[in-house]
Amino acid sequence: MSILRTENLSKVFISRKGIVKSENVVALDNVNIELNERELIGVVGASGSGKSTLAKTLVFLYKPTTGNIYFRDENITKYKSGKIKKYRKNIQMVFQDPYASLDPNHTVEWHVKRPLILIKYKGDINERINELLNMVTLNPPEYYRNKFPHQLSGGQRQRVYLARALAVEPSILIADEPVSMLDVSVRIGILNLLKNIRDMLDLSIIYITHDLNTVSMITDRIYVMHDGKIVEEGNTDSIIKNPMNSYTRELIEAAPNPYKRI
């Protein structure tokens, strides 16, 4: 059963030039994607292909121009602020840059505590913070709780952010290039974490990336995006082994391969 689905979703940015002239930038062009319960799907595309716009539209940071978004088969496109707030309890987003997504003036503890207070967490909040930090493998939690973001490494920050997002107890997680700003050595750790969390918490995850190597490691299905359109979709392995679309082929050709020499 699909938990999140888009139907001909389009987003057009208008940039004005002069009094009458204006230019439309089509960031999303009739995008149809579907996310099933407990599924980890990938959205792949080069920069500028509309991936981030898709992520931000799905969490209502942008309003879609046309098309519909369905959450558990309910059309939520026309939701207003109060309902958007409720909807967002179900969907969280991990940002690309962990150096920008954590407030430099607050501690790790604050970042995890605020969502717990906002969802009116019933149990012991203190315990829960430790539990969440443990879940994202920040051990021991006490060591990290009073640290400020700038005292942590990029990988640690991204884990903290993940704990913050998970504190809301969402059913969907959108990870917008969560590892592209990190050292290659810590990427695997974060990706494994994403996969483990999916298994542990029964989450549905959309993993957005430009990197075909990482996408093939963790996702079940992928969508390939180009110029705001979905150009190819299907099982990850079959697409990577046998791409039908010419753009997908270019993307695969361009992906760095340690065994291939130029």
């Binding site: 969490v59 940002f95 407030d103 003036n105 969502p115 906002l118």
Partner: peptide, 28 residues
């Protein structure tokens, strides 16, 4: 427009909450 403010909007923080907890501190 920064991510850490967008993030607070996502977790359900109100505008006033963001102003008092984050913006005021950031521009202190």
């Amino acid at each position: 427009k920064r991510d850490f403010i967008l993030s607070s909007m996502l977790i359900g923080e109100s505008r006033l909450g963001i102003i008092f907890r984050q913006i005021i501190r950031a521009i202190f």
